[in-house]
Nucleic acid binder design. Structure first.
Lengths: 206, 206
DNA sequence: CCGTGTAGTTACAGACCGGTCACACCCGTG
DNA sequence: CACGGGTGTGACCGGTCTGTAACTACACGG
């Protein structure tokens, strides 16, 4: 875990494998790429890959955990940029979602794997379910902290909108309905929060 | 192999193949099932399959066209049940969407294939894009006919919500955000239509 | 020096894949 | 009866897949 040399230039095989696998899984899907290709692209070999991850499924799960960790960083950014202003953080969330949509053609790695892998005993499923539930719950907490009465409903609405936008992007492209994600999100939020007194920059007083 | 499961032996091989393929593709994904298994499950063989469909990709495309045809029937039902009442048809659409979500764990076949097949030259992609665009446009027309001013925005919103609900169902199950699809959809529609006089079809000249 | 752990290499197993081939068959029609 | 189109059969091709085994190379700390 704690590597003695903080500035290691050459990553260890394990990290190289996860990085490479994330990239290739994202591009080709789980079933669209083989472990041998991944290992080779990571500058190592299949044997080392299997020594670190017992199976391809475990590697997939590890990759998704890695993705989830990055999402945590994004959420930390919301809190850092607008501490104590949940409404502003919600708007940040919308903007961040739009950025994710615009990134590349592929949608959410977690959701993609959930769609691709029909088996319900896959090691990745636990990761996916936990991640998606966490995301929604964080959103709900944000809504409640913003003083929105129907916090759960708004959290569900925004969750579905983002999920839908990211998959719609893959079906009909960036010019489809996903292009209006920000406008829709903002409209929904203001519809829910509109009845409430709007305090943009001031600290929330309970 | 007992083919005569439900007396479908009367159907010609082509229809049996499409029916079976739709079922198995839906259950296991495109890459999760082989043409040989499909042919056998359809009570025929691989050679006959390839005589009707030049490739696995073409079979996938044909299956999706079949799905799209069924969707047409559902839309015809909206018009039949509430002729000249676009707002009621929108509510039908919401209810039909909820039924689709509740059907089984798997979401929209079209969207699933779009997610699973990263290649952009797959024969199914044309079908998917056309279908999804058509669905959205029909929805927009319904909204416009209902006298809703921001028809495109509502159509996009409802499209994203359904798409999101069906993929969310696959990630976190039926008790997740998708459970509130109807409530959310109704709320959104009434928010858009509420400001307008809700007199259907009297103004519209077609 | 030795012992140990990690990484690389080669080869292989066993299964499955999409797709093609030659050939036999059945059955309705002329 | 002959014919021809649609169908069934099994073998086969070349390739890819996950996962394992045996062995080697090397760095490290004692």
């Amino acid at each position: 875990m704690a590597i003695a040399d903080a500035g290691i230039v050459t990553l260890k095989p394990r990290e190289r494998i996860v990085d490479t696998a994330r990239d290739l899984f994202r591009k080709h899907g789980i079933r669209g790429i083989g472990v041998d290709t991944i290992a080779e692209a990571a500058g190592t070999n299949k044997m080392t890959l299997y020594r670190h991850f017992g199976s391809k499924g475990e590697l997939v799960a590890e990759c998704l955990r890695d993705v989830a960790k990055e999402a945590d960083d994004i959420w930390a950014g919301f809190e850092r940029d607008h501490p104590g202003d949940p409404l502003a953080q919600i708007h940040d969330w919308i903007r961040a979602g739009a950025e994710c949509i615009g990134e590349d053609g592929r949608g959410c790695d977690l959701a993609n794997v959930a769609v691709e892998l029909a088996e319900d005993d896959h090691p990745a499923r636990r990761v996916i379910e936990k991640f998606k539930t966490d995301q929604r719950d964080r959103l709900e907490k944000l809504c409640r902290d913003a003083g929105i009465s129907k916090a759960e409903l708004l959290a569900d609405t925004l969750s579905l909108l983002l999920e839908g936008a990211r998959v719609s992007r893959q079906s009909v492209g960036a010019k489809g309905p996903c292009a209006r994600f920000v406008a829709i999100g903002e409209a929904v939020v203001s519809a829910f929060a509109g009845s409430r007194p709007r305090r943009p920059a001031t600290r929330k007083k309970k």
